[in-house]
């Protein structure tokens, strides 16, 4: 079982931390610090596995980012290593050529992807395609309901009507009207989110 997943940069800033076991905040910070210390200075030729307390950390470095998973001592290290790679591929695909900033600004989306990938500390879905499709669907759903909600709550003059149209079109999956319409609608949506 996966105990926690960390995504840290070389400086030790945590970009994503998901815990599948309950821990105190102070303990979490300590763990993050220790795991970073463990992995950051390891030679690339070394194994991707480090024993950590009573468990082991499987980590992999992608550019300046370290993806670390803490798993049970009896778990298959190679399989988790492979799953880290799959996760990175999914992120890369979703953000099309992912970089650290994507993960910072869209941290909530990264969490959502992770929730589609791993649940209760176990692998949930192994198909990249399925997860990406799922995420797109979720995004669309969110976008649509946000617009609808906005429309219902505060109708600002004529824009509300256009928003409604826009939302409907989106729901239907049709192409959007003019650029002007788009930018206005987007402004509203952005300021709302």
């Amino acid at each position: 079982m996966i105990r926690f997943i960390l995504l840290q940069n070389r400086q030790g800033k945590t970009r994503l931390a998901k815990y599948y076991v309950p821990l105190e905040d102070s303990e979490k910070h300590k763990l993050e610090y220790e795991v970073h210390r463990l992995v950051v200075n390891r030679d690339p030729k070394f194994t991707n596995f480090v024993e950590f307390r009573t468990h082991k950390v499987i980590y992999r470095r992608y550019a300046g980012l370290f993806f670390s998973m803490c798993v049970d001592i009896t778990d298959n290290e190679l399989a988790y290593l492979e799953s880290i790679h799959l996760f990175v591929e999914i992120l890369d695909h979703f953000f099309s050529n992912v970089c650290e900033l994507d993960l910072v600004f869209n941290f909530h989306k990264v969490y959502l992807i992770l929730d589609e990938f791993i649940l209760a500390g176990e692998l949930q879905e192994t198909s990249k395609k399925a997860i990406i499709e799922r995420m797109n669907e979720l995004e669309r759903q969110e976008y649509y309901s946000a617009n609808m909600l906005f429309l219902l709550q505060q109708d600002i003059g004529g824009i509300g009507d256009r928003m409604y149209l826009y939302a409907l079109f989106l729901a239907e999956g049709k192409e959007i009207l003019s650029d002007w319409e788009c930018s206005h609608c987007w402004d509203l949506y952005e300021s709302y989110c």
Binding site: N136, Y143, W186, D187, S191
Partner: peptide, 18 residues
Amino acid sequence: MQNLMKALGPGQSGGLKM
């Protein structure tokens, strides 16, 4: 759809002050 959202996503400033 995805592309559109991406294209529009960043860089647009909020229209209302909230």
